[in-house]
Nucleic acid binder design. Structure first.
Lengths: 205, 205
DNA sequence: TAGATTGTTAATCGATTAACAATC
DNA sequence: TAGATTGTTAATCGATTAACAATC
């Protein structure tokens, strides 16, 4: 295990490998090679080997990687060998969709609360969850020690809500709002608003 | 205007600049500097200047950039100075949320069709749209010349659906399904599944 | 053993930063 | 004019690739 700082760009690729390996495992495949994995995710075999070797010697010359073993290791590295509690902020259409999304638990996440400031939404059930008042958010998050939030609120209120979340101890934010957030260095943000991603592709059309 | 190939990483940043500038414009601000824009998006001033200068001399020494002018130029470069028709494939919770999303039109996109294979969904209205049979998708897309699709279907059927879309002429796919898609070189894919993005951040927790 | 594939090194390639002349 | 800020160059830094000894 290399104790040096791992480049962020490598960390970005690990969940992609994990996703592809999980898929192979679901199909009953037991081993793979850097070549095969690379073809499945569109990354060179050399880069896959280099990336994985940052964390240990997980492969075998001649035979490649054991999929169950590599899955275990990648989950451990990414800390998704456990279940993280996550909150949703904003109970609009996108918040609803995330609250009902079935793909989180298998990948390390458990949505435990959803908040909104709209009185007409507070108290309503979404699956197993009940929409809570955003005024209670800071206390609820502090008390539960939650570190991860998904933001599905208008851009206009996203920065102030982020400031509140940071005060409450949140360290990771998945941001659906179309705005760059200013956060302290130890807080991570991932941007996931659809229009921004579409606008990257139109350049090439 | 530089006719050389622009690095993809620069193209990735342009929509982020566009988003921040749009926000400044909404707040009535007329000019900005590479310094100020950089602070707002978390990128160095030197890099902002370098990125923008790939496409022309859009700033003025001493005063910086005119926001309306730079907005125009960036929209032109990214080809979002027009309205692109977009389809949604999959009328589940995420498809619904996207169909109702109000943030597309201002940023160059118009959702014109939504498809599903579930007979109980076909014919139902979502806002102005009616869910159509996915069996008709290839013909509908070909006839309308649509180039952009958003995929909100299960991973299991994502690759085959992608193959259909590519056959129909689609060149840009925003993929919400947790799977790497294999597409020809001239087709772009952006990955936007929430669990993969969350898994990147847990590494740092 | 022979074939396959890893982990790693060195070379190449590309991106970022610092600095500053040009100029508004 | 003086101050500010761009656009661009050169230097630095970091990532990717190619190649191959090690070894399963």
């Amino acid at each position: 295990m290399n104790a040096e700082k791992i480049p962020d760009i490598i960390i970005t690729r690990l969940p992609v490998y994990l996703r592809a390996l999980q898929r192979m495992a679901d199909n009953g495949i037991k081993t793979t090679s850097s070549q095969e994995l690379g073809e499945s995710v569109g990354i060179s075999a050399a880069q896959i080997r280099k990336d994985i070797s940052q964390f240990g010697e997980f492969g075998k010359q001649g035979t490649g990687y054991s999929i169950p073993y590599l899955l275990d290791k990648l989950r451990e590295i990414l800390k998704v060998d456990r279940l993280w509690d996550v909150i949703i902020v904003g109970a609009g259409d996108m918040g609803h969709a995330l609250a009902r999304y079935q793909g989180f638990v298998d990948r390390g996440f458990n949505v435990t609360m959803i908040f909104d400031n709209d009185k007409s939404k507070i108290g309503h059930k979404i699956g197993d969850l009940t929409v809570e008042d955003i005024a209670d958010m800071i206390e609820r998050v502090k008390a539960s020690g939650i570190k991860i939030a998904m933001l599905t609120i208008p851009a206009k209120v996203a920065q102030e809500t982020t400031d509140t979340l940071v005060k409450a101890g949140v360290k990771a934010i998945l941001n659906y709002a179309p705005i760059s957030l200013n956060v302290p260095e130890d807080v991570k943000v991932q941007y996931i608003d659809p229009a921004t991603h579409l606008q990257k592709m139109t350049y090439y059309l």
